[in-house]
Nucleic acid binder design. Structure first.
Lengths: 352, 352
DNA sequence: ATGAAAGCGCTAACAG
DNA sequence: CTGTTAGCGCTTTCAT
């Protein structure tokens, strides 16, 4: 059962291995008749080129790697909640890879361990991936960006993330999305709108807060420092922040949490406090996670085009549009549209 | 920026490349002092062996592949519900791989397309993975099993699945679990217990039904054909089956659905029909999916040790306990424990 | 348009 | 214990 190699195909087709190689790689300079003959031989033998050999000899590995934060991802997997972000990435990226004969590798990286440098360098040296997709917060990790650049490995930074830093980005406009949520609440008649900030390590957290503040200012609505609470994207932090907000003497009639998990925490806090949602207070989230639809009431939130971003990133990488450090001059900055999803958790404020 | 190779390390350490190879692979027959010197050189140069070269030259590829059904997985990803099974697999398998310097590849395979044979053969030829983890329903696909065996690729069949067929298995006892759920309902006082069967293509479906029937018989409880409805593991099928069950003249006081999605369908059907859960009818599911905890009331269900199964399978593969077709004689059959999770959806039957 | 030769970076099978 | 010599299966480069 020795594996069938390019030599077997060449022998059967009566050509040189180079010709077989040409055919397998769709290179030019092969007469149609010849190509046909080689293809027939390959089919008859069930030939499939060995990836390692191709990768070793050539410049392509047919592997796209996705770098995700280890601690975060494991946490999400363990909690069986929130693994949703990675699932969407996998959906978008895997399908593209499949169509192009590529393989997708999810790699956990210890985003802020002292050994990131070594870990990532080793990964790149060992795998030599044809492209890397960076997810937040690695999209903003300068060490990672530097190593990718040095290794001349094409990569795409998946947003949201800080606008600075090198490299191609595929992202969405968190600022605009947060502004739109806030304006939606204002349009319903809310004037006292509370906000729960996300984990500060994420670029998205700042962007969303800025969007909220910009909307409030644009609408000439007052913003009290008391109404802006710090959270960290967890259910628990949302619950605690909401507790404080709901206990305020002049409490907000609406709370906008920077993500769905925290918004669910708000719902829980409201239930505990005997406050009706949306009767007494409206709650909006961000992400459109699956749980946003299982909650009672269902959450008004923002759908992020995560699968679409991953899909686009993968296509850019595979197509060769992005070419490693060679493309540093060239700017790739794709902005994808979000969508405000209005559900039952936001409604008119209570009559005064 | 040429990549650093084994020659660079050998030169710096003043030894032959073979010695470097020995050190990198933890082979014996290297004096500690020598090993130290090589390690120092490797570190100084940030050397990391090229995976493709190792794979091409040697017998190991440091890749473990997980075969999942394409249609099913894409569907789960799209619906953003149920992707949970794959997430748990990834949790268990990825962590083990990471610890051992292996990489995990999730491969979608078109389980019942005419081209499975070619698709899987190509995958094995191209990747030469050190091991393959088969998930249901691929665990039962004879073509896949045959190809794996022929390619001499070690593999583990993740259960539940049919007991027949070759190869090592890591699974849980669906029969016993279903029996336990049924007995739990009976212990609460239920005598008329309905059952919703799962998608027939899954071995688990039969096993769970058998467990239900065995429990009923063992308890001398009547089983009416009317109480056993066919479903297909979807919410919708659970909803429809439950509608029928609830409309029965002498309707069951408890419904045991073969998975959580269908159980959620039951909850929806009950709500529609104005039937209280668990006041009027108890509902139990199977899987302990995340949504089982978001539902109202929360579902009584069975927790499957999916991550543990994947973790064990990965360890078996990496450790070399399972050795491809060479091990066909040797029986590996690991049975992992499930857990009945009692939540609010099951309670005493209504007073007659 | 096709082919021959020379590696890619590593491990395997021997030699010493 | 350490080193030498061949490949692994493919792509590259350079002839033809």
């Amino acid at each position: 059962m020795a594996a069938v190699t390019i030599y077997d195909v060449a022998a059967r087709a009566g050509v040189s291995i180079k010709t077989v190689s040409r055919v397998m790689n769709n290179e030019p300079n092969v007469r149609p008749a010849m190509r046909e003959r080689v293809l027939d031989a390959a089919n008859a033998l069930d030939y499939s080129p060995n990836l390692s050999a191709r990768s070793l000899a050539g410049s392509r590995s047919f592997v796209i790697a996705v770098f995700v934060d280890a601690a975060l991802t494991i946490d999400h997997w363990r909690s069986e909640r929130g693994a949703d972000y990675l699932s969407r990435i996998q959906l978008g990226a895997t399908l593209q890879c499949r169509d192009a004969g590529y393989h997708l590798l999810i790699e956990l990286i210890d985003h802020d361990a002292p050994r990131v440098r070594q870990e990532v360098a080793a990964l790149l040296a060992a795998l030599k991936p044809d492209g890397v997709i960076l997810t937040p917060p690695s999209s903003d990790n300068e060490i990672v960006l530097e190593l990718l650049d040095k290794a001349n490995t094409p990569f795409v930074r998946l947003g949201p993330e800080r606008p600075d830093g090198i490299g191609p980005r595929v992202h969405m406009d968190d600022f605009a999305a947060a502004r739109e949520v806030t304006e939606h609440l204002a349009a319903l008649g809310h004037r006292r709108i509370g906000f729960i900030v996300g984990e500060p390590r994420y670029g998205a957290s700042q962007a969303r807060r800025a969007g909220y503040l910009a909307a409030m200012e644009g609408l000439n609505l007052p913003v009290s420092d008391n109404w802006v609470r710090q959270g960290d994207f967890t259910f628990q932090s949302g619950l605690e922040a909401a507790k404080v907000l709901l206990a305020l003497p002049e409490r907000p009639t609406a709370i906008f949490a920077s993500n769905d998990d925290m918004a669910l925490g708000c719902l829980a806090a409201a239930a505990e406090a005997g406050v009706m949602v949306p009767g007494d207070v409206s709650v909006a989230g961000f992400d459109d996670s699956p749980s946003a639809r299982f909650s009672r009431p269902q959450l008004t939130t923002v759908r992020q085009p995560v699968a679409e971003m991953a899909s686009l990133a993968t296509r850019l990488l595979i197509s060769g549009v992005i070419k490693g450090s060679a493309s540093r001059g060239q700017v790739v900055d794709e902005l994808l549209a979000f969508e405000l999803i209005r559900r039952a958790s936001t409604a008119l404020p209570p009559a005064p």
